[in-house]
Design a protein around this nucleic acid. Sequence first.
DNA 1: CAGCTGACTTGACAGTGTCAAGTTGATCTG
DNA 2: CAGATCAACTTGACACTGTCAAGTCAGCTG
Lengths: 205, 205
Amino acid sequence: MTDDQNTKPHHHGDLRSALIQAGIALLSEGGKDSLTLRKCAARAGVSHAAPAHHFDGISGLRGAIAQEGFRLFRLSMLNASGTENQSELDHLKAICSGYLNFAIDNPALFDLIFSSAPMEGLESNLKSGTAFSYDVLRKACAPFVQPGQDPMIIETQVWSLIHGYTHLYMASRFGRIDLSHQARGPFDQVVSLLDALVVSNATKA
Amino acid sequence: MTDDQNTKPHHHGDLRSALIQAGIALLSEGGKDSLTLRKCAARAGVSHAAPAHHFDGISGLRGAIAQEGFRLFRLSMLNASGTENQSELDHLKAICSGYLNFAIDNPALFDLIFSSAPMEGLESNLKSGTAFSYDVLRKACAPFVQPGQDPMIIETQVWSLIHGYTHLYMASRFGRIDLSHQARGPFDQVVSLLDALVVSNATKA
DNA sequence: CAGCTGACTTGACAGTGTCAAGTTGATCTG
DNA sequence: CAGATCAACTTGACACTGTCAAGTCAGCTG
């Protein structure tokens, strides 16, 4: 696969990232149950116990994959907020759209990075990854924060709304809808609840 | 569920529901990874292959457990909406509180019933179970629906908000908070976004 | 009573994560 | 250049998982 003949440091070269990429590919192809230490090892062309030297078991691999997943997740949000000349509300909604896009494009990876199971190992690295993603949302929420108000409140409101919609959408709870960017359910109508942030802003100002 | 209670069919008596209860107990004690066909069988006092006669493999058992989980989930929401003399908004917020309570009390079961993996088998039974739970939310949302408006919009807004908050809360995304009914994070401040439903109602009326 | 059917058991198999011990090859030291 | 070192990786084993095939056994039907 990624074997380079010229610079082979040891046996494989960069097994760690090869295993992470193999894991993401497995998630993408076969869902979360397809993510397996042995399958990752096989796909990277090494023996079944090789990953143990780079991750602390399967949970360590999952943590490392989640870290990479958060990087892609952040890129999806940033990518969706393309145009510059848009209102702050439209910008926030675009971020939310990127949030949903990532889940649609990477269902199993989205599931993994928001898995209830707290990630063992790499806790600090993973936390920095999540914080890096969270900053995207935080910046988009900043214009709606009242003076003297804790920004966390609006951030949590927005995050809960878009995360809940995305999670329920992926679980097919809004009826049987095909998962694509075109048919994304009542997304626009749901995020219109965020219009209240502006109204509240105007009335109080 | 559809088994006859009075007559002992053969050897065990009511193995099917015994397996479901064993599964819920396992989820409660050891998390989602503890739910195992063989452990359920052992806890019910039967051989490891006995469950195959009552469920279609592990996914069938998970579906049956989810069905029972939705029943308990509905009860948690109804139980939280106790007092009668409260505003419609407070009633809706109380339902949301019951939503969160259920997840706090049954983390792994909450995870299971909203698992992204579509449940195989029992699809129709499970769907009726979810619909039964959804009715609680629907009724609480009804007073806020505008004439001529699709009720699904408000329902999805509310559901997304409370589900997202609950899911993120359970994933410990709002910092490290101990999971209890007393310390439930910024729950009240987040659901206050639903005040906009009343404001919108008043302005348009 | 003979036979049948459904509930359950027993045994096997492939796949999984994890551990212990062995092998290999790049680099370092003299 | 020769030998030592040591991380990277392999090999083999173990317990555990889901699933399948065949066997056992109780109670019912004819």
